[in-house]
């Protein structure tokens, strides 16, 4: 039996299923940005954008763009009714102060102890792209990661015993959503809680450097 990996929108939709009404949520750049598109409007989830937007809504119609309103990826957005704006220090007080029920970030690698690597591919990489990731990673009540299971090109597993890339934060990731599976980070390591149809435990382990555990 063959399996079909989720595309990026599919990963985002899978994450959205697990976000209950009432959560206050920050979505990082990349796959996570798409998560809000899959949360139905009648399920009240409040999205925070690091640049000081509380209640971030979907993209506006082309003739309704407000140049003063963007998200963390500097894309034009709308504001949900009930939303608010704060300055940057307050916005990161929300992130660092434990006020986010959930933050979803992209990553290069996650380790079986929940280490996150998502800002540089090598210690001496000439260009540095930290942004708000280190603040979001240490501050949210829950950190979930959305990423592809396998690195394009090299084919290496992004779920590692130990991260090979520079860390963003240590021991912070609670759950990982990939194009192949959903895995919780537990004291014993990665525990698989869901797989795409057609995937088998043996095949998933073959595609994963870290040892997998099963519920």
């Amino acid at each position: 039996m063959s399996f079909r990996p989720l595309d990026r929108a599919g990963i985002a939709a899978r994450i959205a299923r697990d976000i209950p009404e009432g959560w206050f949520v920050n979505l990082g750049i990349g796959i996570p940005t798409g998560v809000s598109d899959h949360v139905p409007l009648d399920r009240e989830v409040i999205f925070h954008s690091e640049n000081g937007v509380i209640g971030a809504g979907p993209a506006p119609a082309p003739d309704q763009v407000n140049p003063y309103l963007v998200n963390a990826g500097t894309q034009h957005i709308t504001l949900r009714t009930g939303g608010a704006f704060v300055h940057h220090a307050d916005s990161f007080a929300i992130a660092r102060g434990g006020h986010l029920d959930l933050c979803v970030l992209g990553a290069f690698e996650v380790s079986e102890t929940g280490d996150l690597a998502n800002w540089a591919r090598a210690p001496d990489e000439p260009v540095k792209q930290v942004g708000g990731a280190m603040d979001l990673a240490i501050g949210a009540k829950r950190l979930w990661v959305a990423m592809e299971h396998i690195t394009k090109g090299s084919g290496g597993s992004r779920l590692r015993r130990v991260c090979s890339y520079p860390l963003t934060a240590k021991g912070v990731v609670k759950r990982v959503y990939t194009d192949l599976a959903v895995l919780d980070v537990t004291p014993e390591g990665f525990r698989v809680i869901d797989m795409v149809p057609g995937m088998t435990p043996a095949l998933l382990q073959e595609k994963t450097e870290a040892k997998l555990h099963w519920a």
């Binding site: 690091e50 940057h88 220090a89 916005s91 942004g131 603040d135 240490i138």
Partner: peptide, 27 residues
């Protein structure tokens, strides 16, 4: 880190002479 940047600026404006944060500590 972006939050540390905002907080260092706020600290300068608020007379805070230093602060400790988990952000970046293990990096």
């Amino acid at each position: 880190p972006q939050g540390t940047l905002a907080e260092r600026l706020r600290a300068a404006g608020a007379g805070i002479q230093a602060f400790y944060t988990p952000t970046g500590a293990d990096t």
